Computed example of a mutant assay.
Amino acid sequence: MLIRTARRDRLNDGNRPDGCPASSAGLFVIRADGTARFDRHYHDMAEFWLVAAGTGTIAVGDQHHHVIAGDIVYTPAGVEHDIIDVADELHIFWLSAPIPAGGNGSHLHRTPDLAVKHPVAVATRDA
Rank of each mutant, 00 (worst) to 15 (best):
L11T: 01
G105P: 07
P100C: 08
F38V: 05
G105Q: 10
A69P: 01
V67G: 06
I72S: 10
T111E: 13
G26K: 02
H118A: 14
V120K: 10
L2S: 04
H91Q: 05
A115Y: 02
L114D: 13
L50G: 07
A127Y: 09
D62K: 12
R31G: 01
P17V: 00
Y42F: 15
Q63T: 13
A53Q: 00
G70M: 03
A69W: 00
D13T: 09
A101E: 15
D62N: 15
I83K: 06
G19D: 00
A46M: 06
A25Q: 06
A32N: 14
V122N: 07
I83N: 04
L108A: 09
A115V: 02
A101Q: 13
L27A: 03
T75F: 07
L2G: 01
M1C: 08
W94R: 05
I30W: 02
A32Q: 11
P17F: 00
I58E: 01
V86F: 09
S96C: 13
D113F: 05
L108V: 04
S23E: 08
F93W: 12
L2T: 03
R16W: 04
T75S: 10
P98D: 08
Q63V: 14
R110E: 12
V29I: 15
T57E: 14
S23T: 10
G78P: 11
H41R: 02
P17C: 01
A101H: 11
I72L: 14
G26H: 02
I84E: 08
L108S: 08
D62I: 09
F48Y: 15
A22L: 15
P98Y: 11
D44L: 10
P98M: 08
R7Y: 00
H81E: 06
H109Q: 03
T35K: 12
H81W: 07
R125A: 10
P21D: 06
I83D: 04
A123W: 07
T5C: 02
